[in-house]
Design a protein around this nucleic acid. Structure first.
Length: 277
DNA sequence: AAACATTCCTGCACGC
DNA sequence: TGCGTGCAGGAATGTT
């Protein structure tokens, strides 16, 4: 499910629905996620008032009044849904609803993650940029930190594939497997190209297109591939706008040449052999 | 039944 | 030689 657009879509919805609410408890059914959820989390989160819902890279940051932050990562198969109350059984999944947070208006936040690659941590604001998960994370794709000049600089001398560079969270935050394929298609660059050999003009296109694709996906509420649902249980609508991802053997939207699939850095990648050089 | 939307760690190779 | 960096591979795991 979760690359930057999906997490950002979730953030926007939660910003409206849970800001101002106070945590009154939490239940941990299954603490074994990417890291084990701290057993004292329910106790520690109590009375935290949500002042803001933020995001850094693919991490959702639920900020509390006392400068603590509930950090949530959805891993590969996670979701965080807001339910009216404990009695609201919509989408109830006893096998994978691992952690439930209770709020003071009777509603609750449910963290569900079949594959358990997700993460839940309560940290302080001071720790935010220094903890392992975020210390080396690169600039957000929107705004000045990520530019053609920056991408040019960081790509020079690299022998790895351009797609891997784009997906490297230390280079730019938030681009995952789906959007990397989509960005490179729109930039006309094959995913297998050595980063250091990508031309200046191509780098400029990639740098320009990256935030455009991500913004468009956010506008559509993200991509639903297989099972992603937003915090209200709605699927994302960007899936229908994907031009190459998971379209192996189907005609290119531009030239009708059949889309091909290759494995780059152990991840499936899709491209048009005619439109992408 | 092979593939999989993520991250983190390890170990090796390379170059200065 | 030693160090830093880049890169590949593996592991965590359950579902479809």
């Amino acid at each position: 499910m979760p690359e930057l657009p999906e997490v950002e879509s979730l953030r926007r919805i939660l910003a409206r629905s849970i800001k101002g609410r106070r945590f009154i408890g939490a239940t941990i059914v299954e603490p074994r996620l990417r890291r084990t959820v701290a057993s004292d989390l329910p106790k520690r989160i109590c009375d935290g008032v949500i002042t803001r819902v933020g995001r850094r890279a693919k991490y959702l940051l639920i900020e509390l009044h006392d400068d603590r932050i509930l950090m949530v990562h959805l891993g590969m198969s996670g979701s965080l849904t807001h339910r009216r109350g404990l009695a609201d059984n919509t989408g109830f999944d006893p096998r994978h609803d691992h952690v439930t947070f209770m709020l003071d208006d009777g509603s609750c936040l449910v963290f569900n993650d079949p594959r358990r690659f997700g993460l839940i941590r309560l940290i302080t604001r001071a720790e935010l940029e220094s903890i392992t998960e975020l210390a080396a994370t690169g600039p957000e794709p929107f705004g000045g930190g990520f530019s053609a000049a920056y991408l040019w600089r960081t790509s020079r001398g690299r022998s790895g594939a351009i797609k891997n560079l784009l997906m490297d969270q230390r280079i730019v935050a938030g681009v995952g497997n789906i959007y990397a394929s989509e960005i490179l298609f729109r930039a006309g660059v094959r995913p297998t190209r050595r980063a250091g050999k990508v031309t200046r003009a191509e780098i400029e296109r990639i740098a320009k297109i990256t935030p455009q694709v991500l913004r468009a996906a956010i506008g559509s509420g993200g991509t639903t591939f297989r099972s992603y649902r937003d915090s209200q249980g709605q699927p994302g609508r960007y899936a229908e706008r994907l031009q190459v991802y998971d379209r192996k053997g189907q005609p290119c939207v531009t030239c009708a040449t059949l889309i091909r699939a290759v494995v780059v850095g152990q991840r499936s990648s899709f491209f048009c052999p005619r439109c992408q050089k």
